[in-house]
Every structure is written in structure tokens, then in C-alpha cells.
Write a protein that binds this DNA or RNA. Sequence first.
DNA 1: AGTGCGATTGACT
DNA 2: GTCAATCGCACTA
Length: 211
Amino acid sequence: MPDRTRSESHSRKALRRLRRSELPGETVELARYLIGKTLGHDLAEGRVSGRIVETEAYPIGDAAAHAFRGETARNRSLFLEKGHCYVYFAYGSCWMMNVSSEEAGVGAGVLIRALEPIDGLEIMERNRGTSRRTDLTRGPGRLAEAMRINKSLDGLDLCSRQSPLWLAAPVQPTGDIGVTTRIGLSREAHRQLRFYERVNPFVSGPKSVLI
DNA sequence: AGTGCGATTGACT
DNA sequence: GTCAATCGCACTA
């Protein structure tokens, strides 16, 4: 199916932005809840959006979490009320996006690890420098580049009406959800805090089935 | 001021 | 499948 047809068919569907009150108030619950929801970014040249198909929870007290050692200039967005955006730079090359997940003053978040592209595939291809569909948004660094998410969006309220970066209700039914250990960690490596849609080619890593 | 280390990716065998 | 580039940040002195 040509990109334009696919894009138009999705755009016709009314998007309902998620209200803060409907987000679960606990980090692990939010990580599971976000699977199947829509993440969008309204750019000058058009909208880019995708279905969230993979997340990781970094809950309160988790030694692998950026917030574990307390609030700093870098991680302060994790301490905003649930539904705010925390963006950080990793490995000298990648931006990654989290959704803050607890009450104000408590540091925790959910890393968005992969999307299934919905709108703006041409824009994503330009942003990523590739037209290989499965490489556009599979992985936290790749999806940030495709969606043009960077430090300038750090601290944004994803539930605000005016926000260019937003969360919305699912555009199609959500499939079965699986759980595994998180990817790329040395500490707390045993914890089962990675969630993904089980049958989806845009999921970035292993798919052990534990649920 | 110096050091070590990643919540990864893309290139390559 | 393996592997190293890359640089901001936190930690030590």
C-alpha cells in the first residue's frame, strides 16, 4: 500500500488525546498501559505518529533508573507529574524518550523503545536517512530520530492541549502483551520490566513469552 | 580536572 | 552473529 493511502486512512480516524487522569499512577502499570497507544509529534511539515509497541519501566527505587540517585539538572523531568516528557542523550549519539510516571517530586519513568509507524512515513524516512520500514522506529534511538524528538522537547507536558508532542488513544486493537527483562542494563538486570506487543515486527529485541 | 561508563546503533564477518 | 564509535554525565580527588 502506498504511504499516502495508508496515511490518509489513519488520519480520517479521530484521535483522542489521553488525559492525565486516565494514566495509571504507578510506573509499571503505565509501561503496560502505554502499549498500543499512539505517540504523535506535530511538525511544521506535517504529523509523525506511531503505535507504541515496546516500553520499559524504571520504577521508584530501581538502581538502574536515572532518577535513582536523586534529582539533577539532567533528570529533573522524571520528577514532574506523570505524563511529562524526559529526553536524554545516550552513547554520544542517540536521544531517548521517557514518560514521567509518578506524582510530582517522585522520580520514575517509562522508556518508549519502539513504535509502529502510522502517519508521516515520508518525514520519518527523511529524518532517519533510510526507507527501510522496520528500521524507522525500531529501537529508542531510532524512534526519537524518526519522530524528531530531542532535548528541546524535554519537560513537555504530553497531556497538554497545546503540546506538539502528545499521547492518544489506540487507532487499532492492541494485541497480546509479553514481558521480558530490560535491554542493555548491568544493574537490576533480572527484573521483568520490559513490555511489548507479542506479534509485531517493529519490536526491537528478544520476545521471550512470559505472559 | 580526570576518569569510567552507559536505558544504542550501524557497520561488518 | 560480533564490535567499537562517541560524548554527556556523575563520581572521585
